[in-house]
Design a protein around this nucleic acid. Structure first.
Lengths: 337, 337
DNA sequence: ATGAAAGCGCTAACAA
DNA sequence: TTGTTAGCGCTTTCAT
C-alpha cells in the first residue's frame, strides 16, 4: 500500500502539498496547476488510497455511522436501512450495522462504540423496552450524536423520526369506513403503554360517528401466529363484523390464514387492512391493503438528522405521515349492516 | 474523552504500563498485581475507552468487515447478515454494510474501501452479473481478504460458501416425487448460464425414472409478478400436472396468487414447492413448503472464512446442503395420474 | 517490573 | 506556492 509519502516522492513534492491536492481543499493554500497535475498523476500511477484510519485519527472522525437494530427480518428495517445508506454514502459516510436481537446487553455494546470513536454517531431503532436508559443519558450528557428511528424511548430526550402509531391506526380504519364498513374489528396491542394504534382506530370511529364496541377489539401481538390466534378468538366470540384492522402486516398474514381456515374469503366476506407495508404485504394472496410507513424516508431523514448532529447543527424530531396502499384485501360494501 | 495518557497519570504509571494492562496481553511483559489494579481502577474511574482509530492505525487493522449486498429485501440476506454479525461480534469485529442496489459502480466503491484499510476484509453476495471482475482480480493480486457468500463469480478464484442451486432443485423435486407426484412443472431460469435449479429438477426426475417433459418447464424470473405470469402462461398451454416447483419463494408467492385466480387450491389441486425459505415463505397461505438455504450458517461460515483469511490462514470454499422445510403447500397424492 | 521513545499515515499551522 | 513539523492516541521494542 503506497502512503502519501510515496505519492509525494513520486511527484517530487512535499507531503503537505500532496495532501492538499489529494483533499482538494479550497483552503487558503494554493497549488499551481502543474504541481497539482503531477500529484494527481502520481496518485493514479501508484493506485494510492488514503489510509482511512490515519486520516480518522487526525481528523477525529471515522466516517462511519452506526445503525443499531433489534432484528431485520419481518420488519421495516431493510427499507429504512436502504434510506440511511443512500444518504450516508452521498455524504461520504458508511454504515456500521449492529444487531442486538433485542438484547439490552448487545444494544449497550453498540452504544459503547461511540465512546471509542469507532462511529461518529448512531441511529437506533429501539424496538423493545430497554434497561439502557442510563447509557442513553450518558450519550446525551456527552453530546454524542444519536437519533432514534421508527421508535423512540420516551424516557430520554433524544431526537427521533417516526410515524405516529395513532395515525397508522386512524388511516387504516378510515379507509375501511370510507369503503362502507361500520363493524370493524381491531387486532393489536391494547396495553396502556402501547395502544397508539388502538387510539387511532377509536379516533377514526369517532370522527365518522361510529360507536366504539369493545367486543370488536382483540388483543394481538406481532407475527403470523399471534394474528391467527387472535382472529380465532375474536371469531369465536363475535362474528358481527365486516372488516378487520390488524396492527401489523405479519399479524394480518395470520388473519388471512385464519380466514381461510374459517372458510371466509378476503375481501369478499371480510375486508382486511394491515400496517407498515412490510416486504411480505405485497406477496400475500390477496395482496394486502396496508397503511405504509414511508420507510425509505424515515431512513433518509434519520441519516440527515444524524449528519446534522455530527456537524453540530440543531435538529428537531419529526413525525411522518403514513400512506395508505390499497391492494386487494379491502372491498367496498353497500352500506351499514 | 480520556486518553491512555490520562489513565496513566491517574494511575501514576507510564503509558506503556497502562497499555499492557488495558490489553491484558500475556506478553513477556509482567505487571505486578498492585500496578494492574491501579490501572484498572483508573480506567473505571475515568470511563476510559481505547480510541479505535489510533489502535487501528498502529495495529493496521480496523476491526471492521465489509458486507456488500445488492439489496436486502426479499432475499436471503437478512438471515445471512445475522449469521455474519454474530460471529464477527464474537471475534471482536463489526460489520460495515454496503448496499449496491446491484449497481456495479456501487459495488466497486465498496470494494475500494479495502484499499484504504477501512475494512479488514470483505464478504460479497454477488447477485447479478458484474463488470467488476477486474476489481476482484486486484483484490486477489493484492491478497486482500475477500469471500463470496450465497453466490459467486465464476471468473475469479475467490473462496465462497453457498448452497448449490442444483441441489435446491433436486431436493424440491424429490419431495414432490416422494409425495406421489409425477407430473411436476418447473418454473424458473432456463438460460444456459443459470439453470442449475433446472438441472437439479431434471436429475431428480431421472433418479426416480420419470421422463422429462419440456412442456412442463416454463421460464420464470424472480418476484411475485414473474411467478404469477409464468404460472398463467404454463396453465394456458398445459394443464396436465399436479405439482409445481418454483425456483424461489417470491415466484411461488405469485404462483399462489395465480392459482387462486384460476380457481385452483393449493395444495388440494396442485402442490407447490418454493426455494430459499425467505422470510415470506412462512407468512403465505398456505404456508409454503420450501427448500431452505441454511442462511444463518452461510453467514457464519462466510464470516469464519473471512476471519481466517484475515489471519492469513488458508480456507477452502464450501458448499452447503439445502434443507427441506415442509409446511402446508404440498400434499401426498395416491399414485401416478 | 516499569518507563522512554519511535512511529503507524495523515492534516494543518506555520515558516520560508 | 511549497516545505517543515508537530501531533492525533496507541502499541511495542528496548533500556533500565
Amino acid at each position: 500500500m503506497p502512503t502519501i509519502l510515496d505519492v509525494a516522492r513520486e511527484a517530487g513534492v512535499s507531503i503537505s502539498t500532496a495532501s492538499v491536492v489529494i483533499n482538494n481543499k479550497c483552503s487558503n493554500v494554493r497549488v499551481s496547476e502543474r504541481t497539482r497535475k503531477r500529484v494527481q498523476d502520481a496518485v493514479a500511477r501508484l493506485g494510492y488510497r488514503p489510509n482511512v484510519m490515519a486520516r480518522g485519527l487526525r481528523l477525529k472522525r471515522s466516517g462511519l455511522i452506526g445503525v443499531v437494530v433489534g432484528n431485520i427480518e419481518y420488519s421495516t428495517m431493510p427499507a429504512i436501512l436502504q434510506g440511511i445508506e443512500v444518504v450516508a454514502k452521498r455524504f461520504g459516510y458508511n454504515v456500521m450495522l449492529g444487531m442486538t436481537d433485542h438484547k439490552d446487553a448487545d444494544e449497550k455494546y453498540y452504544l459503547e462504540l461511540l465512546h471509542g470513536k469507532k462511529v461518529d454517531g448512531i441511529i437506533v431503532a429501539p424496538a423493545s423496552a430497554s434497561e439502557n436508559i442510563e447509557a442513553y443519558q450518558d450519550i446525551l450528557r456527552e453530546g454524542f450524536p444519536c437519533v432514534f428511528v421508527a421508535h423512540r424511548r420516551q424516557q430520554v430526550n433524544i431526537p427521533y423520526v417516526l410515524v405516529d402509531g395513532k395515525k397508522l391506526g386512524y388511516t387504516g380504519t378510515e379507509h375501511l369506513i370510507q369503503y362502507g364498513h361500520r363493524r370493524i374489528a381491531f387486532l393489536g396491542h391494547t396495553e396502556d403503554t402501547k395502544k397508539r394504534r388502538l387510539s387511532g382506530y377509536c379516533k377514526a370511529l369517532q370522527a365518522y360517528g361510529i360507536n366504539f364496541d369493545a367486543d370488536l377489539v382483540e388483543s394481538c401481538g406481532f407475527g403470523r401466529e399471534n394474528g391467527y390466534e387472535a382472529m380465532q378468538r375474536l371469531w369465536k366470540r363475535n362474528k358481527d363484523f365486516t372488516a378487520v384492522y390488524a396492527h401489523d402486516d405479519t399479524a394480518a398474514a395470520g388473519v388471512i390464514a385464519c380466514m381461510k381456515k374459517l372458510g371466509l374469503n378476503v375481501p369478499e366476506d371480510i375486508s382486511l387492512v394491515g400496517s407498515d407495508d412490510l416486504a411480505i404485504a405485497a406477496m400475500l394472496t390477496p395482496a394486502l391493503t396496508t397503511v405504509a410507513q414511508p420507510k425509505c424516508r424515515l431512513g433518509e431523514i434519520a441519516a440527515e438528522m444524524l449528519l446534522d448532529l455530527i456537524e453540530e447543527k440543531n435538529v428537531s424530531s419529526q413525525i411522518l405521515e403514513p400512506e395508505l396502499v390499497i391492494r386487494e384485501s379491502t372491498r367496498k360494501i353497500a352500506g351499514n349492516a
